[in-house]
Amino acid sequence: MKAPRFSYVRPESLGSALELLAEHGDEARILAGVQSLMPTLNMRLSEPRLLIDINRIDALKGISFEDGTVRIGALARHAELLASPLVAEHLPLIAAAMPHVAHVAVRNRGTFGGSIALADPAAELPACAVALDATFVLASLRGRRTVPARSFFHGLYETALAEDELLVEARIPALAAGYRSSFLEFARRHGDFALAGVCCHAHVDGAVLSDVRLACFGSEDRPLFAGAASAAAEGRAWSGDVKQAVKAALGGDLDPIGSFHASAATRLHLAQVLTGRALDRMVRAG
């Protein structure tokens, strides 16, 4: 398992990274934490000519909080997110999800931006971004643009990123008063990609849920905003009946993909069970 030949550059600035991307387009790949990139190269699943190492670019680093928004730089490592007091305070959904992302060694190198750009359908962070209505900042020599998380993920490993674009950061609204989050996933072994998972975010008043945002992952080709299930809970006091309604609605939102790990029917069942439990917990947490 040796990678095919490639060239390697390590630009020091965002500008030169973007120039390289513009010049080489699809022949080039960004190299961030290489936790996903290196295996695909070694397995010869992809054969880029040029790797652009962005690890020296300071503009892509760090986690900060300003005006009710948390900014997560593309190069923020999973381990940084896990340890960040800002994330713990303002993005409890992500704080709850992080222990499920891979293992310590992978988290030490793997980056937030890498996870978002890769768009693995079973990854936790893309689903969190969808549930939290994150906005991604993309840059190219053509300029900058922002894309909401809900329209960023197009399909299996497919995103809104153009060939010459780089993901710079995410901007995520911080937890507002009265809101709660809940995260649950089901994997065969801890740290594996999930067979099914759910991110819940909502305003909770007593038992009444509003502004409900449910995002499912692991069972579809991308993290999916579960619109019907979210609507089924919207404005209602959480109860057994509402739970049944949410689960039923989820059947309409989801169209899971089966594999040898679990059939489509099992994945839907798991997504329903997890969503019911996650909302139970969220309401109880008050």
Binding site: L195, A262, L270
Partner: peptide, 8 residues
Amino acid sequence: PVTPESVL
């Protein structure tokens, strides 16, 4: 192996 799916 006994799997979650086979138990379900």
